[in-house]
Simulated scan of single mutants.
Amino acid sequence: MNTDNIEIVLVHTSSPGNIGGAARAMKNMGLSRLTLVAPREFPAPEATWRAASASDVLNSARIVDSVDEAIADSQFVVGTSARGRRIPWPVLDPRRCAERLAVSSRTERVAILFGREDRGLTNEELQRCNLHCHIPSHEDYSSLNLAMAVQIVAYELRMWGLAERLPEAADEDWDVPFVTTEEMTRFYRHLEETLTDIGFLDPAAPRQLMPRLARLFNRVRIDDMEMGILRGILTEAQKSAGKH
């Protein structure tokens, strides 16, 4: 993905605060190219303070008079849409849309259009787009703040940009080796002995206690340091019970 080829376009934005919030969302996710189509008020102090440390995105924003001018140099255009249209159009959610944009941005200039706060993009503007992006918000309250919508799309783009650098599993970069199956077997034996010693487990009526505890511990991966802590707790419990 080439973020230099990705442009966020805000169409006829009425609130300067939303412009600042969108700029901040963009910088959070590594995007910098912002185009404003006929904003009602800009520059504005509210945009500046809402942007926080993303004033550089605001200062470099391009201001144009029309959507046609904003996307004239774009080769792939996506329009965000909150509702269905009379004429069916290719529609993707932000995650799948980001994948498409990430691929296109390697060699093409792409633009993502966000419409007016009160009514979004017009049918005519959406018809200028190659693809529509729909954020599937909850039906009880489907209205999204403009800056929030920008944040969602920008985040999904960021995740695609990081795809090759993020670990595929949560424990891929763990700092301590995980215990072996044999060590877990010894732990379960020690656990059973301790529970018997403290009177919690009755060997004559075990009530599936150990299989359930095994299922509990097997839902997570235990590393060497954690195993040392667990075995130490069991040993101290046995000492307190006078059984060590």
Rank of each mutant, 00 (worst) to 15 (best):
G120E: 10
R128E: 13
W89G: 13
R85M: 04
A72K: 14
F114Q: 14
R128V: 03
L121E: 11
A102G: 13
A72R: 15
R106H: 03
T80H: 07
R116Y: 12
A70F: 15
Q75R: 07
G115Y: 10
Q127K: 05
I71C: 04
R83D: 07
R86V: 05
L101E: 13
I87N: 07
G79E: 08
D73L: 09
R119F: 04
P90V: 02
T80L: 13
L121T: 11
R128D: 07
R100H: 08
R116H: 15
I87R: 15
G115S: 03
V78C: 15
A102H: 08
E117F: 15
E117C: 05
R128T: 09
V78P: 03
D68M: 08
V103P: 02
P94R: 03
V91K: 06
T107I: 00
A72D: 07
E108Y: 01
V110R: 11
T80Y: 10
G79W: 02
V110E: 05
Q127R: 05
G84D: 14
G120T: 10
P94N: 04
T107L: 01
D118P: 04
R85C: 06
R119D: 14
E117I: 11
L113I: 04
S81D: 13
R109S: 12
N123E: 01
Q75W: 02
P94T: 14
S74K: 04
P94G: 05
P90T: 06
A82V: 10
Q75T: 13
V91I: 09
R86S: 05
L121C: 04
S81Y: 02
N123R: 00
R109N: 15
R86W: 01
R95I: 10
S81I: 10
S74E: 02
L92G: 01
E108G: 03
A72V: 12
L92I: 05
R116F: 06
I71Y: 05
R86M: 02
C97N: 08
G115W: 12
A82P: 15
Q127S: 12
L92Y: 12
L126I: 12
D73A: 14
A98I: 08
R100D: 12
G84L: 07
V103I: 09
R86N: 07
V110M: 09
